[in-house]
Design a protein around this nucleic acid. Structure first.
Length: 819
RNA sequence: GGGCGCGUAGCUCAGUGGGAGAGCACUCGCCUUACAAGCGAGGGGUCGCAGGUUCGAAACCUGCCGCGCCCACCA
């Protein structure tokens, strides 16, 4: 689902840019783990004579790298599960040639610059995948374990002894020292002496090392240099032996004890019990909850292990990646995620890039018969008889090349010159370090320039309760199922609507159904417009021919256009989708279309103007919605305009057209909405059926300028014309900012007095509350003195409205009581 | 241990100094000639708790409680 989100957001940006006249290039790629993602390159279309129409579909170039074969860990995992029935031999697969060349090229450059080296280090080893892992491929989870304290030495009376503690007892088989802090008075007398290592029987020294923290545990720490990063550092400082006591599968090995061949967890218990039998255990804490590393792929507990691996010296690369954001060349959006970026690039360990997998880009280093090590270039041949390193590269090593290798690097291609650096990378924040950081480091290093201007990060797609989707939880959904049921547009609109920068989104089938309903609404609205001769080619009529309703919807349309423009420039997908949703449904469909129905019945010229406005608004609206709802808008827009495709239609310009007086029009329409809603409310409270047309006299329409809306109000509120013989049995008033309208109805003598009283009581209570609130504020001298005058004026107006409402409602209630 | 963030309607979430909002869910009434995947009306919130700043706080500050994520070689 995350892939669907990437694609959706990216495609929204792309479609808008193309409609704006940019040449936009979308570079999707399948990375090793099957994560689909993409990048966009956009450049203002240059002066090569192409009109906007010329670059319709065929300039929408997509380069799809089929990297899915390059999936070391994932395929390795599958192989294990499938067993040996599949032929997984290395030469059954081929790597993309261009990518291999790019990988080789950058490896050599880094190698020659001394930024790649081979060394014996403690690395994270996954005994299940049987490979080294980089730091970020390890997840730290809290698990209940045990903390065992036990005694070394002291076998004979008077013999030196020292108590150490560990959660991994079995590692004691590889201990080569015990370390204490040099200033620790408790152990000063022991420094330089030796104790006998239980079970194994070797004598090991007690060394003084700053790395031992006197405040932790007993202050004495056992040292297993080959199986713990701290201990490795201590071992290096003191020149200790570093025996490896575990094989690649995580079994005890080469200790010369009976534990050899035993799985590490099995050995943990066995060694503990052996120590217990020897009476050495002085304390046991269980459960002892502590964070331990798990392989992010197989969830196996990772084992720190001394081994010979290849590393990237990340110092200068990470510094450059941090600086690019620090000095503003690259924008991390939203900005709140910047600290996360800096925290990482500024404290990065060297990157272990060698993997002991059978699939992937092999490390381009050859070894000679006398220990020579060379890295020949892609076009060079290693000396005959030399052998290539068996290890392959971390998948993220090749992924990091993506922004430029997809454009042809290392060749100097026109694409590369034109489109690098790219404009924006859209991806989830969960991949910031894995991938974005690699691209930044390699882009800055290989190209000498940032790979993108903006990193626009979105969040994770979660289930309807905000829980992370996972196979084990069983709450994953297949986007294709929803697409089958509700359409691709519905899924896309849902994802776009929920996408707030850097924020996770909960998604459920109900949301998708709601989006489907929206698309359906849009469809029906357009159908209605077409049935009534909406004319998108007529152009906008002159201002003085427009009704207030026309002016209002046009003003709103232009406001929404500007709003959506601004929001999309800021990657606010959710808010732009929301703005379009509400404009379409709540304003265009619910009100303008209803008002238009009346105008279409009016004089011929008025009807024609309405048809032109309908065409104009829908044409614009469909173009605005196109990036969000591409398929439906394509069908509707081509039907409406007869144009070739909305994908190559121009994006609506932000400038409002020659519509004036929208402010007055907006006020009048707002008054109509209030009036109609109040009449409907009265009807509803009185139990007058929606289909029942009731004759009514409206008075007071002139003052708020609503006289032209008389027919519209009657249609919307289902009121009939008052015949000469109308004898109103009931009347009520609606207070509007610019005047009060009185409605007199003939309800054939039937009126639900209790309901009417309840309605008025409720209004009265609200008005009294409003009056009390506003009066309290205005009675406060510091408010009138310190608050801005426009705020004070607004409160005064509200107070006056409340007073008028109360007076009117109380009079009505009084009249009611008299009956 | 460090960093970031979140607690607003039943659920999922917007709102970030001046009248508490959306979608879905819920109640009532409607097959009203674009749409029942719909229309109309309505109910529902001490905006986590406590202080503070301010004329005014859901919003800004401090503390507390609860939750989440990322980073981290503490035995």
């Amino acid at each position: 689902m995350g892939h669907a989100l990437d694609h959706t957001l990216m495609d929204i940006l792309i479609r808008r840019r193309r409609m704006q006249g940019y040449e936009a290039l979308w570079l999707p790629g399948m990375d090793h783990a099957g994560i689909a993602t993409q990048n966009v390159v956009e450049k203002q279309l240059a002066v090569d004579g192409k009109s906007r129409h010329d670059f319709g579909r065929d300039l929408f170039v997509q380069k799809v790298w089929d990297w899915k074969h390059d999936s070391g860990g994932a395929i390795q995992g599958q192989m294990r599960r499938l067993g040996d029935s599949v032929d997984w031999s290395r030469d059954r697969f081929t790597l993309d040639e261009g990518l291999s060349r790019a990988v080789h090229t950058i490896f050599k450059r880094l190698f020659d610059d001394g930024l790649i080296y081979r060394a014996e280090r403690i690395i994270n080893w996954c005994p299940w995948c049987r490979t080294a892992l980089s730091d970020i491929e390890v997840d730290h989870d809290e698990v209940p374990g045990e903390l065992i304290s036990f005694r070394y030495g002291g076998d004979q009376p008077g013999e030196d002894s020292i108590v150490v503690a560990t959660t991994r007892v079995e590692t004691m088989l590889g201990d080569t020292a015990v370390a204490v802090h040099p200033d620790d008075e408790r152990y000063r007398h022991l420094i330089g002496r030796e104790v006998r290592l239980p079970i194994v029987g070797r004598m090991i020294p007690i060394v003084a090392d700053e790395g031992a923290d006197p405040t932790v545990g007993t202050g004495a720490v056992k040292v297993t240099p080959a199986h713990d990063p701290n201990d490795f550092a201590i071992g290096q400082r003191h020149g200790l032996p570093m025996p490896i006591i575990m094989d690649e599968d995580g079994r005890i090995a080469n200790t010369g004890t009976r534990f050899d061949g035993m799985d590490r967890f099995e050995a943990r218990e066995a060694v503990r019990e052996e120590l217990r039998a020897q009476g050495r255990i002085v304390a046991e804490k269980r459960p002892y909850v502590h964070a331990i590393g798990h392989c992010s792929r197989s969830d196996t507990v990772v084992e720190p292990r001394l081994s010979l691996q290849w590393f990237v010296r990340v110092g200068p690369l990470a510094k450059a990646a941090g600086d690019a954001v620090r000095d503003g060349r690259v924008l991390v959006h939203p900005k709140e995620l910047e600290p996360r970026w800096f925290g990482w690039v500024d404290n990065m360990h060297d990157w272990c890039i060698s993997r002991q997998l059978w699939w992937g880009h092999r490390i381009p280093v050859w070894y000679g018969p006398n220990g020579e090590v060379v890295c020949p270039g892609p076009d060079e041949r290693p000396p005959a008889g030399w052998t290539q390193d068996e290890d392959v590269l971390d998948t993220w090593f090749s992924s990091g090349l993506w922004p430029f290798s997809t454009l042809g690097w290392p060749e100097d291609t026109p694409d590369l010159r034109r489109f690098y650096p790219t404009s924006v990378l859209v991806t989830g924040y969960d991949i910031l370090f894995f991938w974005v950081a690699r691209m930044m480091m390699f882009g800055l290093y290989a190209m000498g320039e940032k790979p993108f201007d903006v990193v626009a990060l979105h969040g994770l797609v979660r289930d309807q309760h905000g829980k992370k989707m996972s196979k084990s939880r069983g709450n994953t959904v297949d986007p294709l199922e929803w697409i089958d049921r509700y359409g691709a547009d519905a899924l896309r609109f849902t994802l776009a609507r929920g996408a707030n920068p850097g924020g996770d989104q909960a998604i459920s089938e109900e949301w998708v159904a709601g989006s489907r309903n929206f698309a359906n609404k849009l469809w029906n609205a357009t159908r209605f417009a077409l049935m009534n001769g909406a004319d998108a080619g007529a152009g906008l009529p002159a201002g003085d021919e427009l009704t207030d309703a026309d002016r209002w919807i046009l003003g709103r349309l232009h406001a929404v256009t500007r709003e959506v423009d601004a929001l999309l420039e800021d990657f606010q997908f959710g808010k732009s989708a929301e703005a379009l949703y509400h404009f379409t449904w709540d304003e265009f469909c619910d009100w303008y279309l209803e008002l238009a129905k009346v105008q279409l019945q009016a004089a011929e010229r008025t009807a024609d103007v309405t048809r032109a406005v309908l065409g104009y608004v829908l044409d614009t609206l469909l173009r605005l919605l196109h990036p969000f709802v591409p398929f439906v808008t394509e069908a509707l827009w081509t039907a409406l305009t007869g144009g070739e495709s909305v994908t190559i239609a121009p994006w609506p310009p932000p400038e409002p057209s020659t519509v004036d007086e929208t402010e007055v029009a907006a006020q009048r329409v707002a008054a109509v909405q209030k009036l109609v809603t109040e009449i409907r409310r009265f009807r509803s409270d009185q139990g007058i059926g929606p289909g029942q047309r009731v004759a009514a006299r409206l008075s007071g329409l002139d003052t708020p300028g609503l006289a032209p809306f008389d027919a519209a109000i009657r249609t919307l509120a289902r009121l009939g014309q008052p015949g000469a013989a109308l004898r109103p049995t009931v009347s009520f008033e609606v207070g509007l900012p610019a005047g009060t309208v009185t409605i007199e109805l003939d309800t054939s003598g039937v009126i639900d007095l209790a309901a009417e009283r309840a309605r008025l009581d409720k209004d009265l209570a609200a008005a009294r509350k409003e009056l009390a609130g506003t009066e309290a504020k205005l009675a406060n001298p510091s408010f009138t003195r310190k608050a801005p005058s426009e705020v004070v004026d607004k409160i005064r107006l509200r107070r006056e409205v409340a007073r008028a409402d109360i007076e009117r409602i109380e009079a009505r209630l009084g009249a009611l009581a008299a009956r």
